[in-house]
Computed example of a mutant assay.
Amino acid sequence: MAVGTFTVWPVRVERVDRAVAGRAMLWAPALGALLGAAIGSVAGFGTWLGWSAPLAALLAVGAGALFTRGLHLDGLADLADGLGSGRPAADALEVMRRSDIGPFGVLTLLVAVGAQALALAELAEVSFWAAVVGATTAGAAGRLAATLACLRRVPSARPDGLGAFVAGTVGVPAAVVVSAGVLALCALGLLHSPGFALACAAGTVLGVVVAAGTLRHAVRRLGGITGDVLGALVEIAVTATLLVAAARA
């Protein structure tokens, strides 16, 4: 279920219930790490082939969107439109449900994709391993933000949809273990330098904190989480983590 939800890879799910949903959300950071490693590798190999770092990084971010069907970027745009509308919760949720994209969504996507691409480009200019490790930790941090948004005290904004299915399915002990695993993953930064490993850890923490602030605002405005909220949290945490890693690389 985690693979089918967070990647474009087709899978056959034999059992679908809230218990399975909770375990799938716990697997999300591991899948995020694998996706991030693939994205960082595309950027690193692109610069090795002779492309400019910004071009290689932009293509890598585009590949990441392809690997995930653009699901998280779509959620980010929808949440920006919904919150930016300034409407009551029910109307804002209706705005988010629509298939079109408004000015808030367009602007948010431009900033997010641009920031991710330029930050990844800085990492790729430093070294291949800096790009791979930075993108790996960012991918894990982004999905960790979604995992933590499914803790049992966080409600769903709708009675149906992905948000309702996964809301409240993650227990605190399991979330702590997964969070510790993501922080431990930052030790891969030692392949570049000890300082870079610390930067990856700091970026992960900042990414989760920024996502938590967004989650709190979304719950207050919308009444809970939706699938779009989860996707937005992923992209927000990924962006923040990459920015910190790039600043210290």
Score class of each variant (00 low, 15 high):
Leu93Lys: 10
Gly168His: 11
Leu206Phe: 00
Leu148Trp: 04
Thr47Tyr: 02
Ala149Leu: 07
Leu185Cys: 04
Leu185Tyr: 06
Thr226Asn: 10
Leu151Ala: 10
Leu79Tyr: 08
Ala138Trp: 06
Trp27Asn: 01
Gly195Ile: 08
Arg69Ile: 06
Ala121Met: 11
Arg98His: 15
Asp74His: 12
Pro29Ser: 09
Ala141His: 10
Val95Ser: 12
Gly36Glu: 09
Ala141Lys: 05
Gly181Asp: 15
Val61Met: 08
Arg143Gln: 05
Val42Lys: 14
Gly82Cys: 09
Thr136Glu: 12
Leu230Ala: 14
Gly62Cys: 08
Gly40Arg: 13
Val20Asn: 00
Ala37Gly: 15
Ala240Tyr: 00
Thr137His: 13
Ala19Asn: 12
Leu34Asp: 05
Ala30Asp: 07
Arg97His: 15
Leu185Arg: 12
Gly82Phe: 08
Trp9Phe: 15
Gly75Met: 04
Ala63Glu: 06
Asp91Gly: 02
Ala33Cys: 03
Glu94Trp: 02
Leu73Asn: 00
Gly40Gln: 10
Arg23Glu: 14
Leu118Val: 13
Thr137Trp: 04
Ala57Cys: 10
Asp228Ala: 09
Ala174Lys: 10
Ala138Arg: 09
Ala157Phe: 02
Arg15Trp: 02
Leu31Lys: 07
Gly223Met: 01
Ile236Cys: 02
Val11Asn: 07
Ala140Thr: 00
Thr241Met: 05
Ala30Phe: 13
Ala146Arg: 10
Thr5Arg: 10
Leu233Gly: 08
Gly134Tyr: 05
Leu215Arg: 11
Thr239Lys: 08
Glu122Gln: 15
Val229Glu: 11
Gly223Trp: 00
Ala240Asp: 02
His72Ile: 12
Thr241His: 05
Leu198Glu: 08
Pro194Asp: 09
Gly224Asp: 07
Leu79Gln: 09
Gly22Asn: 09
Val13Ser: 07
Met1Asn: 05
Gly62Gln: 11
Leu183Ile: 14
Trp51Val: 00
Ile225Pro: 10
Trp48Phe: 11
Ala157Lys: 05
Gly163Met: 12
Ala77Cys: 12
Val205Asn: 03
Ala240Leu: 03
Gly44Lys: 07
Leu71Cys: 03
Leu66Ser: 03
Leu110Thr: 13
Met1Thr: 11
Leu233Val: 04
Ala2Thr: 08
Met96Pro: 14
Val11Met: 14
Ala37Cys: 11
Ala115Pro: 04
Ile225Leu: 10
Gly142Pro: 01
Ala187Glu: 06
Asp100Cys: 01
Phe45Pro: 00
Val20Ile: 06
Leu55Ile: 14
Pro194Leu: 12
Val178Tyr: 04
Ile225Arg: 06
Ile225Asn: 03
Thr7Met: 01
Cys186His: 00
Leu191Phe: 12
Leu118His: 13
Cys150Pro: 02
Ala138Leu: 05
Ser52Arg: 01
Gly70Phe: 02
Trp27Gly: 13
Val219Ile: 09
Gln116Val: 01
Gly207Arg: 01
Leu191Cys: 08
Val209Glu: 01
Val132Met: 11
Ala38Gln: 03
Ala92Val: 13
